[in-house]
C-alpha cells in the first residue's frame, strides 16, 4: 500500500511518542489511564471492522472478549498453559465464535436492528452459560495467580501493560489500514453502502461479513486475555457485560465509524471526559449518563463522528480554495 509521506511521518511520530511516553510520565495513574485508552480503542477497532466498515452493528461485541478471557484463563488455571500461548487459543476461540454467530445470523439474512439484537442475545446466552457450568467457576468467577513474567503476560509495573496495550493498538490500526487499502475492505464498504448492489456486483457478501466478524472475534479474544492477566479475576458479569459492548460501539461512533483513527480518538475523548467527570463527582453512573448524551448528540448532529468534524472543515477549506 502507498501512503502519502505526510501521514506516514505523523504516524511514525505518534508511535515514537507513544513508545517513549513511559519515560516521560512518572505517574502510574496516568499510565494506567493511557493503557485503558489504548485497550478501549483496540476493542472499538474490533467493533469498527464489522460495524464501521461493513455496516453491521452488534450490541453484543463483548461475547468475544469474554470468551477469550475464559479460554486463556481456563487453559492457565486448569492445564497450566502459559497465557503467551493461551492468547492465541483465545484469538482462535473468538474467531470461531464469530464464525458460528456470523454464519447463523448472516445466513438467515439478519440485518440492521435484528443483527444488533441477536448479538445481544448471544452475549446474554453465554453469560448465563458461564454462570451455570462448572469449568468457568460459575458465579464465583476465576481467580488467577499473580506470577509476573512475559511468559504469563503479567507485569510488575504499569509500563509492561502499557506496552502490551500499545502493541494491541498498533496491530488493530494496521488491520484497519489494511482494510482501507485492500480489496476485502472495499468489499466490506460496498456491503455497508448497499448490500444488494454489492451482491449484484459479485461480492460474496455472506463470506465477507463472516470474515469481518471473525476478525472482530479474534481481536476480542486477545483483549479478553489482556484483561484477565491485568486484573487476575473474571466472572460472568464482567466477561459478558453489556456496558463493555456499549463502550466498544460508543468510542467508535464518537470518534468516527469506518475510519482508521476513529476508535482511538473516541476512546481518548471519552476517557478524558470520564476522568474529568470523576474528578468532580465520584458517584457511580454519572460518567455513563454523560456518555449517553454524547452518543445521542453525535448520532444526531455528527454522524461521521469527531473525525468527520475535522474532515469537513478540511473539505470546506479545499472547496474555498477552489
Amino acid at each position: 500500500m502507498k501512503l502519502p509521506f505526510q501521514s506516514t511521518f505523523f504516524m511514525a511520530l505518534g508511535l515514537l511518542v507513544a513508545v517513549l511516553a513511559p519515560f516521560g510520565i512518572s505517574s502510574k495513574f496516568q499510565l494506567d489511564v493511557l493503557t485503558l485508552i489504548f485497550f478501549t480503542a483496540y476493542l472499538g477497532q474490533s467493533w469498527n471492522i464489522l460495524g464501521g466498515y461493513a455496516g453491521q452493528f452488534s450490541f453484543g461485541g463483548v461475547m468475544f472478549f469474554g470468551t477469550g478471557a475464559y479460554t486463556s484463563s481456563i487453559l492457565l488455571s486448569s492445564f497450566g498453559l502459559p497465557p503467551i500461548i493461551g492468547i492465541f487459543a483465545a484469538i482462535f476461540m473468538g474467531a470461531l465464535l464469530g464464525l458460528v454467530v456470523g454464519y447463523l445470523s448472516f445466513r438467515s439474512g439478519l440485518r440492521g436492528s435484528y443483527f444488533a439484537l441477536i448479538t445481544l442475545a448471544f452475549a446474554e446466552l453465554l453469560r448465563v452459560l458461564a454462570n451455570s457450568v462448572e469449568f468457568t467457576g460459575g458465579g464465583v468467577g476465576l481467580f488467577l495467580s499473580y506470577a509476573p513474567g512475559l511468559y504469563n503476560l503479567q507485569f510488575t509495573s504499569p509500563t509492561g501493560f502499557y506496552y502490551f496495550s500499545l502493541i494491541l493498538l498498533v496491530i488493530s490500526l494496521a488491520i484497519a489500514m489494511w482494510l482501507e487499502h485492500s480489496r476485502f475492505g472495499a468489499q466490506l464498504v460496498a456491503i455497508r453502502e448497499n448490500e444488494d448492489a454489492a451482491e449484484a456486483l459479485g461480492v460474496d457478501t455472506l463470506k465477507c461479513k463472516i470474515y469481518a466478524i471473525m476478525i472482530m472475534g479474534g481481536m476480542g479474544g486477545a483483549a479478553g486475555t489482556f484483561y484477565a492477566q491485568k486484573y487476575l479475576y473474571i466472572d460472568p458479569p464482567i466477561s459478558y457485560s453489556i456496558a463493555l459492548s456499549v463502550e466498544m460501539l460508543l468510542v467508535t461512533i464518537v470518534g468516527g465509524m469506518g475510519t482508521v483513527f476513529g476508535p482511538l480518538i473516541g476512546s481518548f475523548v471519552l476517557h478524558t471526559v470520564n476522568e474529568i467527570a470523576r474528578h468532580f463527582i465520584s458517584t457511580p453512573g454519572l460518567s455513563l449518563i454523560v456518555y449517553g448524551f454524547i452518543l445521542i448528540v453525535i448520532i444526531s448532529y455528527l454522524p461521521n463522528g469527531l473525525i468527520g468534524l475535522f474532515r469537513k472543515t478540511q473539505k470546506n477549506k479545499e472547496d474555498n480554495d477552489a
Partner: peptide, 9 residues
C-alpha cells in the same frame, strides 16, 4: 436504535 440505546444508558 442507537438513540434509544443512548436514552436507555
Amino acid at each position: 436504535l442507537l438513540i434509544t440505546l443512548g436514552l436507555s444508558i
